[in-house]
Each structure stands twice: as structure tokens, then as C-alpha cells.
Design a protein around this nucleic acid. Structure first.
Length: 779
RNA sequence: UGGGGCAUCGUCUAAUGGCAGGACAACGGUCUUUGGAACCGUCGGUCGUGGUUCGAGUCCACGUGCCCCAGCCA
């Protein structure tokens, strides 16, 4: 196992940094990640991103990836969901090592672990009513108070817990709690529940267990049992990490899994919470979990999105420690990019307008290519695919397209009064029929309602010129088809926060019709009856097409039948035409960022602090540092000790800015005398601040004496201008572009040159001297 | 409010204390038998105020804003 070098599945991030360190330190020989969905709903894009991350990292590091159902709540979980989860994640292209794991497979192990905890006096059976327990837990401001049962003997706890397991008590009568700290400021640590009694049938274990582990007690121990090393979860569980660590400490030991949290990703114009998805289904706003507008993997699959596109999307979204909402354009881009190379081009007309070619008597059959030239050119072996997958030379990747005297074109492609820049058909105008020469519109007919219903045109062959190209199909030899044009499910990018604002305006009165549903996009599905060229009838049913100028489509896997074709629009084409109407509406514009009115903020010092502040200032300490020192007794004490060996004015900024955090958190390993000695070296010009800082950091972790490190390494400051100039010359010669850019005005490069010299000299050059040299040489 | 987490172009994401870069979007152009694709370019960012430093997105202090925690859900 080693650090990945080529083509990572997941870009480097704060987790891979930790893994790199762990591997380097030899803490694990192989990394193991896992994805633990709860089988209480369908997999959605959020699952896709999180599972891809776990799988991808394991792949990148040659580690193992496990899939585990987190099925510890029999009341909400179902076999159907577990199966769907497995099916959908497999479809996504994830491969897990070993069988699918289930937390429920480890119920016996967990039970034994709970017994051990009780035996160690670290867990107890609590028998107070639920509401009472909630009350005793206190609040964020008020510490909790112990339950009267907290002091039960080990024997009594053991007996009670065993009787819980034996099913002797009704649901909710007792719980097993960890004995941690009821006064902890971390609410999660106030004696969390480990086990509860639930008499309900579990979809896998049936009625064999009347007790079920809680999230916390299932997570850490099963991670450990299946060998997980890096247990990733989302940010809302940060506080739970304390329980995770506590359990591992008392039940497992090293090496053991550790939990790391990442920020959730949500997607514009969608919701993913199970409750909301169910509401969409129940309300008939979508047809089910696999409705192509749903953010579920089942929905995306039915829509025609490929797993490759979703993996590309997941990779591009990335991971950080911040909750983020991703621009839906990123998803659409990933889908188009994938389909551009995958989808053969054919023609369909979804808003038909009849065209009669008055001078065309005979029918003919054209042979049109499936692929545009740029895709052909991009093919590595020069071959391209037929819809059936067969790879052939471009001139063989063709289909027959009948050209007949009666055609259909897109109604949008004809305008009686064209807006400026309109490149399609107009009365008397000429346009190119894709692959079939030019036509001129001689006449147009209107129906009783005044709508244009037919065009009479002259077919010109190649005689003439036209700037526009439109698509078409034969009116007599094409296939009828239904087209389902899917669009965003919501009108606004953030339906949930919009709904929340509404709620607040209503003063807490949550009305059914004022929630996120009120932001549904009424045009999220538009159904059209039109025509598609007949060649598609002989293609495999899962073929994804680009209907030229319309978008990417594929036959609906459930509803499309040979005699009754139904095509789903997977995603439209980008449209950069800004005509009369412009591109299709993209929702309401975002609200601009609010101006933040922020004052400078000044701490009010107490009288005593004020006195100390004045004293430090009098000793030559800068105001900001003096203010910090005056308010922090620990720093002041440290500084006072160090002051026996060096002037306060020289020491203060080091104590505040370099050692401040470690002194405060009690991890400081540099003695006041040692700091004073180091600072004296800086003051004497023997070393520069850069060396001092590096050495200090090293001393902080190793506990060595910093001045000793300086002596042992022979570190010193290089002031010799001639020597530095020689180094600088080499660097200027090696970076002619940067030199030119600097002379051209990019003075930000000063830092670059100084930095290069510093690096070259192992940080020992006198940076002021270098800076002057650079300025002199390039100025 | 006690505790915890987070803050870089409109969006997502990079930058051992040393050139704030990439992708998406937007905008403009080239090319084009798809107003597609491709290619080129433009716009645009370190939450604020101080401090440390030759040099700060990164370190320190003080602010501001957002998110999570008081289920026997996960």
C-alpha cells in the first residue's frame, strides 16, 4: 500500500492527509473504509457522494471498502430498502470487499461488549420514564442530574440487562446507558443510551432480539469488528466522536478505527430528506422513488443518467469540512460531458410543424452519420460505435434516413416575424436541413386559430447558402413517440431554506401549502407527442441518443414499448442562443450577498487587566500583544519567568504569537529559559526569525532544547551579500519568465524570489538582505 | 445562551508562511451542415479589524456570520 500517484478517484483532501500521516507512521498496514447507510429509504445523490468518497479513497490507497447496513432500528428499516441500496450502489459502480455487512449480524458481539462495559462499571440500566430522562439531562446551559438508578450495583445491572435481553420487559421500560458525565458541556456525553428495548420485528433478525443498540453503540464497535481504520461520517456527528473514542478506549484498544467528519453536500433545486421525498411521492407530485425527477439513484438511472456521469460529478464536488450546496450546473455538465461521447446523433421533432417540399416528387433515402466530425476526430482508434456497440469506421456508422416530400420540422424553427439574430426559417428565407440540403420557404398557411400549420417550401439541394441548420424528420416514414421533458423539480435553488423563511413569517404556523412543496416547479415535466426517425426501432432499448439540437434522450425503461415509444429527456443541450426569449429560464436569480456591517470590536479590560496592559506597554510591548498578555495569566506567568533571561520587549510577541496556543492548552514543551536563549540568538542576528520559528515548532513536538537544535545543526544566518547575490543570480537565470513578469509590473513576485533564495539556502539567508538584493537587481 | 464545527471567485475546490490556481457558471470571440462539441479570451475571491513576520488565505487576538448538539432516530 502506498500513496497514490496516478489518476486518483478522490482528489487530495484533509482525510487523505491524515491517511498519508497514518501510513507514514505505520499506524495501519492497510486502510479500510466503509459506507454505512440505514436501510430506511432509497439511495440518493447525497449517498452517492459519500459512498463514492469512501470507496474512492480505499481504491486510491489499495485498501478495502466495505458496505454495511446500519440496521439497528427495526421500526423504520425494511428488506426492500436494503436490497435497493445494494442494487443502486452496485449500479453506481462501487465494489465492496467481502459480503454486504449488516450491523444486525453483530448483535451478539455488541451484546457481549455491553456486558463487558457493565462489568467494568461503565454502564448501567436506567429505569426512569423517557420524559424524566430527558428532563434530567438538563439543557445546554444547565448540567444534567444523575438518575436515581445511576448507582446500581454491577450485579444488579448485569441481571437487569440480561433480563432485558431475555425479553422480560415491555418496550421502553429500561435502557442501558454509558456512565460518562452528566455535567459535560458536550450534550452527547451526558450518559448516552447504548441499548433500548423495542419489541418489534426486525427485517433480518425477526424477533430474536427485544433490545437494539443505539447509533453510537452500533457505530464504533462494528467499525472495529469489521476492521475499519478510517470511519468517515458527516459533520453533525462531531460531538458523537467523544462517545466513539470513549467506547474504543474501554472496549478495544489499538489499533482501532477513528472517526473523521466531513461536510454534507446538498444540491440546488432538490431535497433529499426521506420525509420530504416520501411527501413528494404521497402527494402525487412525482410517480415514485424512481421518478426521473427524483434525486434518488433509482430516479437518475431511470432518467438515463449513467453511473460514470455520477462518479465524475461526485469527484468534482470533492470533500471538505464545510457543508456546501452544489450548483446543479455541475451535475448537468458531468452528464453532458459523458453523453457527448456516448450518444449517437439522430433526429426527432417534438413540436411538429408540417413542411411540404413542393418540387420534390420522389422519395429518397439518405445515409447519415451517427457522429459529428469532432467526436470522430477524438476517437483514439479512429473507430466509432454503432448504437449496438459495434465499433466501425466512421463512414460505416450510418443509418438510413428517408427524405420525403412531406416533413416535420420543429415549430420553434419557423418565425413569421423573426427576432434579430434568428438563424432559422422565415418566410422567403433559406435554411439548411441537417444532412439534406437547403430549403426556401415560399408560403405559410395558418389554421382557424391563426397558428402557422404548414409551410410550403422549395428544396434547393446544395444550390445556395444558409446560415442556419435545423433538424427534421419524414412526415410519412417516421415513428410516433412520446417525449417526456424533465426539468428541475423546484423553482428555486434552495426550496428548504425558502420554506423555512416562509414558516418564520407565519409565526410558527406551519401550513401544508406553505412548505417546500409550494416551490415545486409546475413545469418539471412536460409531455409532448412527436416524431422520431425510424432507425431507432432497430437499436438496443438502452441506447442513449442525442436528438440533434434538442438534448439527450433515451427510451423510458418501463413505459417505452416498440409500438409506443416513450423517450425521457436526460438533459437538454447547452443553449447559448439569446434570442427573443433567451435560454430557457434557470430559476429566480440569487439574492446578492449581504453587506456585513462589522465593527472593529474592542475588548473591555478590567481595572487589573488595564494595569497589566499599561505595564507591558511601558516595557516596550506592542499594544495588541500587551492586550493579550494582560488578559491571560498563563501567558503572563510564562513571560515573567522568561524575563529573567531576556527583555520582555523581545520576548512578548514570541510568547503571544508562537507559544500562545500551546501554553493555553498545556502542551507547551519549551521552557521560558529555552525561549529566552533562542530569542537572544535572533536578537544577536545569529539566526533569523524563520529559523527560530522552524526550530521552535520542532522543539514543541520533540521536547528538545531549541538553541541546542540550532547548535547541533549548525544553523546560522547568512548575511554575506556576495554569497546571497550568487544564489539570487542562479535563481533569476532559472526563472526568466518570472523576471520578465516582475519587470512588467507583477511585483507580487518579490515574495517568490525571496522565497526561492530562502529555500535554496535552507532558510538561512537573511531575508531583509535578500529582499534588498532583489529590489536592487530588478528595480 | 453552554459546548462543538465552519468561513477562498456567483458555485465547488486548490495553494511546506513565498506568483491566490483549476473546474462549473456568466460574458466575448474562433470554428462549425447541431445556436451542440472543441478551442481561445474576459469577468470574478481569501468574512471584518488589528497584530506577528522581509513576506499572511495560512500564525496570534478580537469581532461578524452560518451550521450542529438538550430522541430510547441515524
Amino acid at each position: 500500500m502506498s500513496t497514490p500517484t496516478v489518476q486518483r478517484r478522490v482528489n487530495p483532501n484533509f482525510i487523505t492527509e491524515i491517511i498519508d500521516e497514518d501510513l507514514k507512521a505505520g499506524r495501519y498496514s492497510q486502510i479500510v473504509t466503509r459506507f454505512p447507510p440505514e436501510p430506511n429509504g432509497y439511495a440518493h445523490l447525497g449517498h452517492a457522494i459519500a459512498s463514492y468518497l469512501n470507496w474512492g479513497i480505499a481504491q486510491d490507497y489499495g485498501g478495502l471498502f466495505r458496505l454495511r447496513m446500519d440496521d439497528t432500528n427495526p421500526q423504520t428499516e425494511r428488506q426492500e430498502y436494503a436490497e435497493a441500496l445494494v442494487r443502486d450502489l452496485a449500479w453506481l459502480g462501487l465494489r465492496w470487499d467481502g459480503k454486504v455487512e449488516y450491523a444486525s449480524d453483530y448483535f451478539e458481539d455488541l451484546y457481549q461488549m455491553a456486558l463487558r462495559l457493565i462489568q467494568k462499571g461503565l454502564a448501567y440500566v436506567d429505569s426512569i420514564p423517557h420524559e424524566e430522562m430527558v428532563r434530567l439531562r438538563g439543557s445546554v446551559e444547565v448540567p444534567g442530574t444523575p438518575s436515581p438508578y445511576r448507582q446500581r450495583s454491577i450485579e444488579e445491572n448485569l441481571e437487569l440487562f440480561q433480563r432485558m435481553r431475555a425479553g422480560e420487559f415491555p418496550t421502553g421500560a429500561h435502557v442501558l446507558r454509558a456512565k460518562i458525565d452528566l455535567a459535560s458541556p458536550n450534550m452527547k456525553l451526558r450518559d448516552p443510551v447504548l441499548y433500548r428495548i423495542v419489541h418489534a420485528e426486525h427485517y433480518r433478525t425477526g424477533t430474536t432480539w427485544p433490545i437494539y443498540p443505539s447509533y453510537d453503540f452500533a457505530q464504533a464497535p462494528t467499525d472495529a469488528l469489521i476492521g475499519v481504520t478510517h470511519s468517515l461520517c458527516s459533520l453533525e456527528f462531531v460531538d458523537n466522536r467523544a462517545i466513539y473514542d470513549w467506547l474504543m478506549e474501554h472496549l478495544w484498544g489499538e489499533p482501532r478505527p477513528r472517526q473523521y467528519e466531513f461536510g454534507r453536500r446538498s444540491l440546488e433545486y432538490t431535497v433529499v430528506s426521506k420525509r420530504k421525498l416520501l411527501k413528494l411521492i404521497a402527494g402525487g407530485h412525482v410517480t415514485g422513488w424512481d421518478d426521473p425527477r427524483m434525486p434518488t439513484l433509482a430516479g437518475q438511472r431511470r432518467r438515463g443518467v449513467t453511473p460514470e456521469a455520477l462518479r465524475t460529478f461526485a469527484k468534482s464536488v470533492g470533500i471538505s469540512r464545510t457543508n456546501r450546496t452544489v450548483d446543479i450546473a455541475l451535475l448537468e455538465h458531468a452528464i453532458r460531458e459523458d453523453l457527448n461521447l456516448r450518444a449517437p446523433r439522430v433526429m426527432a421533432v417534438i413540436r411538429p410543424l408540417k413542411v411540404v417540399l413542393t418540387n420534390l416528387e420522389a422519395e429518397s433515402t439518405l445515409s447519415l452519420r451517427y457522429w459529428p466530425d469532432d467526436v470522430v476526430r477524438g476517437s483514439p482508434d479512429g473507430l466509432v460505435a454503432r448504437p449496438n456497440g459495434e465499433r466501425v469506421r466512421p463512414e460505416e456508422a450510418v443509418r438510413p434516413v428517408p427524405l420525403t416530400p412531406e416533413l416535420y420540422i420543429e415549430a420553434d424553427d419557423f418565425e413569421v416575424e423573426p427576432p434579430p439574430g434568428f438563424k432559422r426559417l422565415t418566410p422567403g428565407g433559406t435554411v439548411r436541413l441537417r444532412g439534406a440540403g437547403l430549403i426556401r420557404c415560399d408560403e405559410y398557411l395558418r389554421d382557424a386559430t391563426g397558428q402557422v400549420c404548414e409551410l410550403r417550401c422549395t428544396w434547393l439541394g446544395e444550390a445556395g447558402k444558409a446560415s442556419g441548420v435545423i433538424h427534421w424528420v419524414s412526415a410519412t416514414q417516421s415513428l410516433r413517440a412520446e417525449f417526456r421533458l424533465y426539468d428541475r423539480l423546484f423553482r428555486v435553488p434552495l426550496p428548504e431554506s425558502e420554506a423555512k423563511e416562509l414558516e418564520e413569517e407565519e409565526e410558527g404556523e406551519t401550513r401544508e401549502d406553505r412548505d417546500f412543496l409550494s416551490f415545486l416547479n409546475p413545469q418539471s415535466l412536460e409531455v409532448r407527442q412527436g416524431w422520431v426517425e425510424a432507425s431507432v426501432a432497430s437499436d438496443p432499448p438502452e441506447t442513449r441518443y442525442q436528438f440533434e439540437r434538442l438534448g439527450y434522450f433515451w427510451p423510458d425503461p418501463l413505459d417505452s414499448k416498440p409500438g409506443a415509444l416513450v423517450f425521457n429527456r436526460i438533459v437538454g443541450l447547452r443553449d447559448s442562443w439569446k434570442g427573443a426569449e433567451g435560454p430557457r429560464p434557470k430559476g429566480e436569480p440569487r439574492a446578492p450577498k449581504e453587506e456585513k456591517g462589522q465593527g472593529p470590536g474592542q475588548v473591555v479590560l478590567s481595572a487589573q487587566e488595564q494595569a497589566r496592559f499599561e505595564r507591558f506597554k511601558g516595557q516596550g510591548v506592542g499594544e495588541a500583544d500587551a492586550r493579550v498578555l494582560a488578559r491571560d495569566p498563563a501567558l503572563e506567568a510564562y513571560l515573567n519567568q522568561a524575563a529573567r533571561w531576556a527583555p520582555v520587549a523581545h520576548l512578548a510577541s514570541w510568547v503571544v504569537n508562537e507559544l500562545g496556543s500551546s501554553i493555553r492548552e498545556g502542551s507547551n514543551k519549551v521552557s521560558p529559559a529555552a525561549l529566552a536563549e533562542l530569542v537572544a540568538l535572533v536578537q544577536g542576528g545569529e539566526i533569523n526569525t524563520r529559523i527560530a520559528k522552524d526550530v521552535l515548532a520542532e522543539a514543541q513536538s520533540s521536547g528538545e532544547n531549541p538553541a541546542e537544535i540550532v547548535r547541533a545543526r549548525g544553523l546560522r544566518q547568512v548575511n554575506d551579500s556576495a554569497a546571497l547575490e550568487a544564489v539570487l543570480d542562479r535563481i533569476l537565470a532559472a526563472h526568466p519568465d518570472q523576471v520578465a513578469a516582475y519587470r512588467g509590473g507583477k511585483t507580487g513576485l518579490l515574495g517568490f524570489f525571496v522565497g526561492q533564495v530562502m529555500r535554496e539556502t535552507g532558510g538561512q539567508a537573511n531575508p531583509q538582505t535578500v529582499r534588498e538584493l532583489v529590489l536592487r537587481r530588478l528595480g
